[in-house]
Design a protein around this nucleic acid. Structure first.
Lengths: 241, 241
DNA sequence: TAGTGGTCTAGACCACTAG
DNA sequence: TAGTGGTCTAGACCACTAG
């Protein structure tokens, strides 16, 4: 076996991560599939286990793979585009913001509906429960949200999902595993309906957040479309040097 | 020496990171100061070096500390707020977006001026060069930017700074070390001047980005205020599970 | 040249998953 | 129970910084 590490000035874990990224991009490790185990990769590349893990950690931070203790590591994403800035955070941090904000919920309607999906979102569930609601803080409305929740999951605790923060409820259900979570933020202007709910003028700036959770099999179990008042959004970005 | 690790169900590197975070929050390790070396921390807590590094990596990702090979690890930040979502990316990624976007630059003016600063931004440089410019892509203007650059740095390559992407020039200067970089994104509406530059209607949605770079001593060497057309902004956020 | 962070090895034990 | 990821140890060598 000859070593694949040609450039000793680049750390092995970075070279490994690059190589793994290539395998994912080229479909050698297709989306949704299980990667070889750490042990196998250790043997294939003749490096220490820790080095493989460092490489995997990189890919996990990029959202390409999702390691799961006891199960294996799944491919959960494709290549990132360079046109937009890709940023990282954690589901925990997102949840903390919800806890800290302590929103008051107003229901705007409930139905069964299918969301608009694209191929990269994942595999659709058979049926979704659509929950529309308004979030307020100290009586001031700051976002309207449409949540599409896999109806099989909704039916396990309908009352809780209707009255609590959906992400909080999902986190307490041990049978629900979120393997991948991501969201996209864009900037928009309020239409008449949104403006009326948020009590802002039509055409005021808003932020649109589209959030998707997949389970380990790639099924889209949660999809939310959130429209925030623009002045409620503030993103602190730490740029690692 | 008795072990400080009481809860064996929480990984030691996480407990260590929590403890370090406390020391920073309480001012035992004040902002701008150098932390004990990894060796010293290994002895103090009687853990493996790798474990201390894992903990430091966490804090570095949060922007609290900035490890510098050969120099030591500096405290570069305070506690994060829970009200806003904190996200992470890298200076490299930000730079890649600039390279990929290949902006055409139009100068809107140059002067010597002081930016509006707050205490947490860092220590001001004695004097700043203010460069105002418009970025276009394929002839379409998409942002106006005001760059305050430490005049001592500007004077090393005035022509390059005037005609190239400032971040690119900074990266090529080996004598310039960026120890900390961060930016804040908020949402706004275009005023008359911005609307005219960006060729959009007054009150159209915009994104405001305020970006600050500090050198290892905490001096603010670069501060940029960027106003983007709202429809040009799209943030992909990966939420680690 | 001494001090410091960055990476890597080889091996160990644990926690979790799924049959 | 076998397979898999998560964490940790003890020690080594390297790259970079600053006097």
């Amino acid at each position: 076996m000859h070593s694949i590490f040609r450039d000793s000035s680049i750390p092995r874990n970075v070279q490994l991560a690059d190589l793994f990224r290539q395998r994912i991009a080229r479909g050698i490790w297709p989306l949704g599939h299980k990667l070889p185990s750490l042990e196998e990769l250790v043997r294939e590349f003749d490096v220490a286990r820790v080095t493989v893990r460092q490489a995997m950690n990189r890919l996990a931070r990029e959202g390409l793979v999702s390691p799961q203790q006891g199960r294996g590591t799944m491919v959960t994403g494709g290549a990132a585009t360079d046109r937009w800035l890709n940023v990282q955070t954690t589901l925990d941090d997102l949840h903390k913001v919800y806890l800290d904000t302590k929103p008051e919920l107003t229901n705007l309607g409930e139905s069964v509906a299918m969301p608009q999906l694209t191929a990269i979102d994942g595999t659709p569930a058979p049926e979704y429960r659509l929950l529309r609601r308004l979030h307020q803080r100290d009586g001031v409305p700051y976002c309207v949200i449409s949540i599409y929740l896999d109806n099989r999951i909704f039916n396990r605790a309908p009352q809780r999902f209707r009255n609590e923060i959906v992400i909080s409820v999902l986190r307490t259900m041990r049978s629900v595993k979120v393997a991948r979570a991501r969201q996209t933020l864009t900037i928009n202007a309020a239409d008449v309906e949104v403006a009326s709910h948020l009590q802002i003028p039509v055409n005021s700036p808003t932020a649109e957040v589209r959030r998707v959770f997949n389970d380990p099999a790639g099924t889209i179990i949660y999809l939310a479309e959130v429209t925030y008042r623009g002045d409620f959004i503030r993103l602190e970005m730490n740029l690692r040097v």
